[in-house]
Nucleic acid binder design. Structure first.
Lengths: 129, 129
DNA sequence: CCTTGACTTAGAGTGTACTCGAAGCCCTAG
DNA sequence: CTAGGGCTTCGAGTACACTCTAAGTCAAGG
């Protein structure tokens, strides 16, 4: 699979894929005889995982660390696990905070809704029954 | 309250407070006779709310829109409400996605844990009982 | 009076993560 | 055989949100 195809399937742009390879987030891809990148479908699994790390707010620096450990093989699994656990805990904390903020947002919105209600009642000169 | 004090109380740096004022996220602060910003404690409520918008991923552009509406008074409440509702829905979607990613992360970690367990069993030449 | 430290402004610099432009190569279809 | 499209590399440019520097002002304490 060439880069354009991979871009379509992964949701990344070809620019981003090259960028990720340049910085080491994606392994250096094999090239065909005209120097074009030729990808195996298995790369998609890795890209998807990277997407999850990104979606949960992991900075590229840390993904790079994980990617480097992965390249070094099975001996680094404990460290990879530790890295993910640390990240998961941060994500969890973040999630909790997000839920709290969502509640505040909901209350604020409810406040606006109540205000609108009062205005409507006022405008129509109706009383609550 | 001067800017240093507000910085301490709000958790923003003085740089950030000036930056926010410059771009219109904070109202232009009154100055004392030596041109120093003199804040009323009520600004803290607004800064805290901005913090929540930020923590839930609202870009500054949109906070600016909200801030501008707020400056225009009560007539813009419906629009402000709509803006917040739109944002809340995005946050909610984001939250849901985050939870899903957290689950995947947990599974991945569990996978590493299981692998470690297998290695330990192998090393000690013990059998499951 | 003089130093110290917090403040002022305008504008430049930083970090993160892309995103794109330029110039050129190579395969396929007409 | 040639035009088109997708690919290559390298390096520059962009967007966002700060973050800091420089040069100067000002009020209070010793």
């Amino acid at each position: 699979m060439k880069i354009g195809e991979l871009a379509k399937r992964s949701g990344l742009t070809a620019y981003t894929i090259r960028y990720y390879e340049r910085i080491g987030l994606l392994p250096y891809a094999d090239r065909d005889r005209s120097s074009q990148r030729d990808y195996d479908a298995s790369i998609l699994t890795w890209i998807e995982f990277l997407g999850r790390l990104k979606a949960t707010g992991m900075p590229i620096r840390e993904m790079l660390r994980y990617a480097a450990l992965r390249e070094q093989g099975a001996a680094t699994e404990a460290e990879r696990r530790a890295l993910l656990e640390k990240h998961r805990d941060r994500v969890y904390a973040n999630l909790t905070e997000l839920q709290a903020n969502l509640l505040v947002l909901d209350n604020k919105i409810a406040g606006y809704a109540a205000a609108e209600q009062r205005i409507e009642n006022g405008h129509s000169h109706r009383k609550a029954r």
